[in-house]
């Protein structure tokens, strides 16, 4: 019940955040030089056609009224036509967003398992050889941008060792499963098409690894820091003093309080990864939202830009709500505080 109230309240807050975001997007779109009507019909169309379209597109109305029309359309999922793909922006999003999301989820999984794993290992063997190795790797991971890893992995594992495919989400010749979720792996599974499933996973690994390297290194550092701090706490000394085995002490009584910081950062990294993956998506020719958004920005494709920003805004809000819920579950002190205040 408390959780539901919390979600409801946060969703209510989110409405205002998104409204604010939409106003900013709308204003930017209208300030940009160029006449959307003229752009839509092309340079050679006669002036009266443009004028008619301008009237149709409400471009002659005052800004607040234009905003009203734009918002109602957007709420109906109508963001207009993309100049680049010449298709409905909504259709583009529907196609590209799941690809990015699938990539981001895979990368999140790698980040969580390896980041927390390495962090734990490091904290456990603090100041010893293993710890130093992990720390050096983490530093390199944090300071190296993901596109460097992308190129490195592409060259090493894609070409030299030839272990992984380097382009797209499925190999040529592999039948594409019918789109249900837009996640290639899940769709393949739903269709019972295991050839496609393995092929899709095979395609996912390199770009997801490239995307995960930085965040994984970050999580490893944060996990190590909070774990080695918590290792000096009396509650760890106490539970050890009572004869509880080391496995339980580390895996339960140390892990849970140490994960709070890690999970907060991981949520932001996930949403950020979705938005910042464009170079990785570009390198691996991944048909994702990030690459789509980047192309839209480069070509001043306003309709596409607005839609991408709005989608990413929603993702950030949803991820933040989820992170807060998880953290509140992990730490009763936070959970209670959230329930007491306002």
């Amino acid at each position: 019940m408390r959780t539901l109230t919390f979600i409801a309240r946060r969703a209510f807050h989110a409405i205002f955040v998104l409204l604010g975001l939409s106003i900013v997007i709308f204003i930017i779109a209208r300030i940009m030089p160029g006449d959307p009507a003229r752009v839509a019909v092309g340079a050679r169309a006669p002036e009266w056609v443009v004028e008619q379209l301008r009237e149709q597109m409400h471009l002659n109305d005052p800004l607040p009224i234009q905003y009203y029309y734009w918002l109602t359309d957007a709420l109906h999922g109508d963001f207009g036509i993309s100049l680049v793909t010449r298709r409905n922006v909504a259709d583009d999003i529907r196609e590209f967003f799941p690809a990015s999301l699938e990539l981001a989820f895979t990368s999140l999984l790698i980040t969580a398992v390896l980041g927390i794993g390495l962090g734990t290992l490091s904290a456990r063997h603090k100041d010893k050889f293993i710890d130093n190795v992990v720390r050096v790797i983490s530093y390199m991971g944090v300071v190296t941008p993901s596109f460097v890893f992308a190129i490195l992995f592409l060259l090493l594992f894609g070409y030299v060792l030839d272990l992984f495919p380097t382009i797209g989400r499925l190999s040529e010749g592999v039948p594409r499963p019918p789109t249900v979720t837009g996640f290639m792996t899940i769709d393949s599974l739903l269709a019972g098409n295991f050839t496609a499933l393995f092929d899709a996973l095979h395609h996912l690994i390199l770009p997801a690894m490239a995307l995960a390297m930085g965040t994984m290194a970050q999580e490893a550092r944060i996990t190590r820091a909070s774990m080695s701090e918590n290792l000096t706490k009396d509650y760890i000394a106490a539970i050890r003093a009572f004869g509880v085995p080391e496995r339980t002490v580390m895996g339960r009584f140390l892990l849970k309080p140490s994960l709070i910081a890690t999970i907060s950062i991981m949520g932001l990294d996930f949403a950020g990864g979705l938005a910042n993956a464009f170079l990785v998506e570009l390198i691996f020719v991944w048909p994702g939202l990030s690459r789509y958004g980047m192309n839209a920005i480069l070509r001043k494709d306003l309709n596409a830009i607005s839609a991408v920003i709005l989608v990413l805004g929603v993702v950030f809000i949803v991820v933040n709500i989820i992170v807060d819920l998880v953290v509140a579950r992990l730490d009763p002190r936070i959970g209670l505080r959230a329930a007491r205040s306002d």
Partner: peptide
Amino acid sequence: LRETRGRGISMIFQDPTAALNPVF
């Protein structure tokens, strides 16, 4: 060591707030 801890020797800590894990 594990068998000595707890059954052999056990300890009451100075500060009960610090000795109890806050998230369990």
